[in-house]
Design a protein around this nucleic acid. Structure first.
Lengths: 196, 196
DNA sequence: CTTTTTGTGGAGGGATCGCTTCAAAATGAG
DNA sequence: CTCATTTTGAAGCGATCCCTCCACAAAAAG
């Protein structure tokens, strides 16, 4: 009933995510996004409303594509146990963080702001998604089978593993070899449960 | 033999560090720095040459003041062992990351850029300092007493602990309670050595 | 005093920022 | 076809960015 878009939304989100991922929110301009997507600024604002909203949509797109393995790992905790689930989660994350053709590190953990008390628009949005990951990790440890004895309460373990993921993301961005990251992942996963 | 500076250099670095610490390099402007220090832009450029150089000097100042405990911890590895040294290091870091009157998180680990392949000026400088911390950690594990059996090679453990520090910094910036961070620190320190 | 040297404030240049405006263009409905 | 609706490209708005220039101020040296 009206003029169609020159670029499909999914494709536009792909390009936007790519830029936000490798440069972060602040250092990605509307002009950059427009050039990458192949449209002018007015089209972006007509389709997404604001740069912040496009950032939010891009991170959602990230969760539904590159990070789509998370729900499956959560669902398998009862069956496979905590250590294997954490190891699986971290190894899939590492593979994502070091894939050729994609920016290094995690789009959510690296893409936001940088400051400590970061109350910028991009920083607040990234924090929302970070809390979503923490919530997922809490769910993972909370759903552990009774045979697994956790080394720390689920709330603390969730923060611990989220912190390690943040570290893995930065190490990947700094060029650490994938095999080294995997050793850290295995070590972290093993440290979550008490040896039985 | 010439006109004295209106603000001593140490005091200027204090103010500059404060801003870089809480906002990061990109989101701190020369105008902000000038207002905080109490001088105009020309004085900053006359004294430090560029915004990047002021950032570098500020992080150096950070290492020599707030993070001055690092060399002492390194020197005590032979005496106190790996676990206690790592725990001491992380607990002092946590205290720094959550001190009242100071920005949350680590000035080095949070103050740089955010992107994955961050080739911005601030990102590159922050990376230099990050590698300095990694080097210090490698030195810590490399100097472990022979009675300590490391869970992983020193090179990997250094990256692991650096990653955890990055996580602690972000968790602190996101408002995690100090007592929870300490539990993560104790857990991390204990996981570095094999139970004897 | 004068001279020399260095630091200072104020003004502004050139570039880029997020975002808006607007007329033209592209479709489906009738 | 006409009409209604939505998207698009181009131009530009005010703000902010890093940095520079320049005349003047403040000290030590002679």
């Amino acid at each position: 009933m009206s003029r169609p878009r020159s670029v499909p939304e999914a494709e536009a989100l792909d390009q936007a995510l790519q830029l936000f991922w490798e440069r972060g929110f602040d250092r990605t301009s509307i002009a950059d996004l427009g050039e990458a997507i192949g449209v002018g600024p007015s089209s972006i604002y007509n389709a997404f409303g604001s740069k912040a909203e496009l950032f939010r949509r891009s991170l959602d797109h990230y969760l539904q594509t590159h990070a789509a393995f998370i729900p499956g790992v959560l669902a398998g905790v009862q069956e496979h146990g905590v250590e294997e689930s954490v190891r699986d989660l971290l190894q899939r994350a590492i593979k994502l963080y070091t894939s050729k053709g994609l920016p290094r590190g995690c789009a959510i953990l690296q893409g936001g702001g940088s400051g400590g008390s970061d109350d910028s628009e991009g920083g607040l949005i990234a924090r929302e998604f970070r809390q979503g990951i923490e919530q997922a990790l809490r769910q993972l440890f909370g759903g552990a089978p009774p045979t697994d004895e956790l080394a720390l309460p689920p709330k603390i373990l969730a923060k611990y593993v989220l912190g390690v993921m943040r570290g893995l993301s930065q190490l990947a961005a700094d060029g650490t070899r994938r095999s080294d990251l995997v050793k850290i992942a295995d070590h972290t996963a093993a440290s979550c449960v008490v040896l039985g």
